[in-house]
Amino acid sequence: MLLRLEALSKRFGRDWVIRDLSLSLDRGEVVALLGPNGSGKTTLLRLMAGLLKPTRGRVERQGHALFLPNPPAFHRHLTAREHLLFDLAFHGAAGDWEGALKRFGLPAELPLAAFSSGMKKRLALARLTLLRPDLWLLDEPETALDQEGRALLQETIREARKGASVVLATHDRALAEAVADRAVWLGAA
């Protein structure tokens, strides 16, 4: 088992965002988190990534997880090449950064200040394919992507499941149906 949530709950102030959620995830599985804005999808991803501590319950995770926030965060003065080379060096990984940029249709030497939101999302996906985490945590990965980018996203998620697991928070039911093995509905608490 790659990930297990046991009676997970998170409260901010007096408001419960997540209450008593239990879930397990095996390697190679894709789970979609669905629900309205404010239902706790992003909070749940952040708990899974270890970026937040639960109010109650437990998160057990094996392997390395990477969280792709929406929107992805990058240093605007660096180029796509510089970002990917930094990520590879930081994680002690090796990878074909040139091939990743080509696959995702991105220029190597353009500063990210000149990137559109969709280009930044493609760069975040390129980063994940290079670093190959065990657990991909994607927050609305389809946002800002054009039709070609959405097709590339689906292809990337399908490829990721060969060696990893994916949890994606989305409002796009068509995406969830296309790539997920199962869906978890989060309603407003």
Rank of each mutant, 00 (worst) to 15 (best):
M1Q: 02
L3C: 00
E6T: 15
A7K: 15
S9T: 14
F12M: 01
G13T: 07
R14G: 13
D15P: 12
I18R: 08
R19V: 12
L23F: 15
S24F: 06
S24I: 10
D26H: 13
R27H: 05
G28R: 10
G28M: 11
E29I: 12
E29C: 06
A32D: 05
L33C: 05
L33D: 01
L33H: 08
L33T: 12
P36V: 07
N37M: 00
G38E: 09
G40M: 06
K41A: 09
K41C: 08
T42V: 02
T42Y: 08
T42G: 11
T43N: 11
L45E: 04
L47G: 00
M48Q: 10
L51F: 10
L52C: 00
P54T: 04
G57I: 05
G57E: 03
G57A: 10
R58S: 15
R58D: 07
V59M: 10
E60N: 04
R61L: 15
R61C: 05
Q62L: 14
G63Q: 02
H64W: 15
A65R: 14
L66W: 15
F67I: 06
P69D: 01
N70Q: 14
P71D: 03
A73T: 07
A73I: 11
A73F: 04
F74N: 14
F74L: 12
H75P: 09
H75Q: 10
H77Y: 15
H77G: 13
L78V: 06
T79W: 13
T79R: 13
T79C: 13
L85P: 01
L85W: 00
A89L: 02
F90K: 11
G92V: 05
G92A: 12
G92P: 09
A93C: 14
G95D: 13
G95Q: 10
A100M: 11
L101V: 09
L101I: 14
K102F: 11
P107W: 03
A108R: 12
A108S: 15
L110G: 09
L110T: 15
L112T: 09
L112Q: 13
A113C: 07
A114W: 13
A114P: 00
F115R: 03
S116D: 07
G118R: 07
K120G: 14
K121N: 14
R122S: 03
L123D: 02
A124S: 13
L125G: 03
L125I: 01
A126R: 01
T129M: 11
T129R: 01
W136K: 03
W136F: 04
L137A: 08
L138P: 01
D139E: 05
D139S: 12
D139Q: 12
E142H: 03
T143M: 09
A144T: 07
L145Q: 02
L145Y: 05
Q154S: 10
I157S: 04
R158I: 00
E159F: 09
R161M: 03
R161G: 02
K162D: 04
G163H: 12
G163L: 02
A164P: 02
L168P: 03
L168C: 06
A169E: 06
T170I: 00
T170D: 05
H171I: 09
D172W: 06
D172C: 08
D172L: 01
L175M: 13
A178P: 04
A178I: 11
A178C: 03
R182V: 02
A183K: 10
A183C: 14
W185F: 14
G187W: 13
A189G: 13
A189N: 11
